[in-house]
Amino acid sequence: MASTSVDVKELPASYIFVADVPGIKNSEVKVQIENDSILKISGERRRDDNPTFDVKYVRAERPAGKFMRKFNLPSNANLEGVSAACQDGQLTVVVPKIPPPAPYKPRTFDIPIGTLVYTNPK
């Protein structure tokens, strides 16, 4: 199984995965979330062989065949907001982050000035 190069970037609000997929049609690339924690990018590179000609490769350096990459996503990944786009041989997958909870702020109460009436129970 072949591989593809992927850059992973972390931004304040998201994680960005950029994969090289030159010559691959959008319909031949899959982006999936497995087990609610794994991003899977897969597809297949095909040779441009024409079946009407008898082709003999003298040199074949470009990888062909199926490829797959898996990435463990952090716990703050928003799996419902994942998006992907493919343009000019680059697949970009955006995984937004779940915003952190608001920091705890103590509540302040205004206390009126007055006399305290205390009764002594007998």
Rank of each mutant, 00 (worst) to 15 (best):
F67Y: 15
G81N: 08
N26C: 03
I98Q: 02
C86F: 03
D54Q: 15
P101Q: 13
P74L: 11
T4A: 09
N50Q: 14
N76L: 09
N76E: 14
I41G: 00
D36H: 10
D49Y: 11
K56D: 12
D54I: 15
D48S: 12
P22G: 11
Y104T: 10
M1E: 03
P22S: 12
Q32T: 11
S75M: 06
S83T: 15
S83I: 04
G89S: 07
P63E: 06
V31C: 03
D48N: 11
K30M: 12
T52H: 13
G89T: 11
V6W: 00
T115C: 04
Y118K: 13
P121R: 14
Y104P: 02
I38N: 10
I111P: 02
R62D: 14
A64K: 08
S14H: 07
P96C: 04
K105Q: 14
R69A: 15
G114M: 01
K25Y: 09
N26S: 15
Q32W: 03
G65L: 04
V18M: 08
N72W: 02
I98G: 01
S27H: 02
V31P: 04
S27A: 08
G65K: 10
V8T: 13
A77D: 07
V58L: 14
G89K: 11
R45H: 04
F109C: 03
G65A: 05
A2N: 07
L73T: 10
N120Y: 13
T92M: 04
E10N: 00
A60T: 06
D54S: 15
N78I: 04
D54F: 15
V29Y: 02
D88M: 11
T4D: 06
T92F: 01
V95Y: 04
Q87P: 02
R62V: 15
V18S: 13
V21N: 05
R107W: 04
V29C: 05
Y118H: 10
M68P: 00
E28N: 12
A102W: 00
A102M: 05
T52I: 15
N76Y: 11
L11G: 09
D88C: 04
N50H: 14
C86N: 09
K70V: 14
G43M: 02
K40Q: 07
P121E: 14
V95N: 03
K105E: 12
A2I: 01
Y104I: 10
V55K: 01
S5V: 06
Y57A: 12
D36Y: 07
A13Y: 10
K25C: 05
R69Y: 09
N26K: 15
S27V: 01
I111V: 13
A85D: 13
K66T: 07
P12K: 08
G23F: 06
D49H: 05
R59Y: 05
V94D: 07
P51H: 06
F17P: 06
P96Q: 04
S5H: 09
G65T: 06
S5R: 06
N120L: 14
I111R: 04
P103Q: 05
P74W: 08
D36L: 08
